[in-house]
Amino acid sequence: MNIIVLMKQVPEIEKVRFDYEKGRLDRSSAGAVTNPFDLNALEAAVQIKERAGGSVTAISMGPMQAIEMLRDALARGADKAILLSDERFAGADTLATAYTLATAIKKLGAFDLVICGEKTVDGDTAQVGPEVAEFLGIPHAAYVEEIREINAKWIVVKARMEQSDYILKLSLPALITVTKDINVPRLPTLRDKLKAMRAPITIWTYDDLSQVADQKYFGFEGSPTRVIKVFTPVTGGRRGQMISGSPEEIAAKIVHILRENKILG
């Protein structure tokens, strides 16, 4: 079983400072960590490998510092790690990101399963997984909470939608995106951690991929969406408004507030 895990390095979200006045974000005090959902994706892959044999390859697209994250992935059980890093990949939206990742997966050759996190904590779109599946022309299941069965031909998963759980059988190769409920990522052993510190990471640049893809779909140029500006929602402190009146008046005012905030239709 050849399993590919897609992993993204993200800023430590609790430490990013949001300047509510200037509408800017300051990442300087935030370290870089693995997108938490991607640890669940990796754990799922390693568990399948432990059961069914095979190998796990972690792939990330990002700046060179993502090597650190990929080393951590090796310590946690990945067999191989590839970083797609090039200035010309930068500024990618989800479409260009997915295209680049799908190109790398194709270049790798045969695979059975691709596993992604449900979403990232920074871009937060949850789009890359399904888009990669489309570029690869394989079926996918999003929000997978449980892997029930897997063999060389198919995988059975439980995917959680708002109202119902779907039990889906996907023929392989396929892609799944996983939620935090699927497993508890294991901690690496110190020994594996130290060993991984010295492990080589394969790096693919634009030139490595441009032979097998259409370059105009990479990076900023290949991205149809544009972030025009970012601003911070006006929260900061709480409003602290008192609602007063008779119980009936108060009830009416609460309903009005819920309406204003579209909690109620």
């Binding site: 989800t94 789009q127 997984g129 399904p130 929000y143």
Partner: peptide, 23 residues
């Protein structure tokens, strides 16, 4: 932007090669 929508929309966007804004 329900779970169904967020699973379906990106596939359509990729097939159409168009941009998709999330949520």
């Amino acid at each position: 932007a329900t779970r169904m929508g967020r699973s379906l929309a990106p596939r359509i966007a990729a097939a159409l090669r168009t941009g998709l804004t999330a949520d």
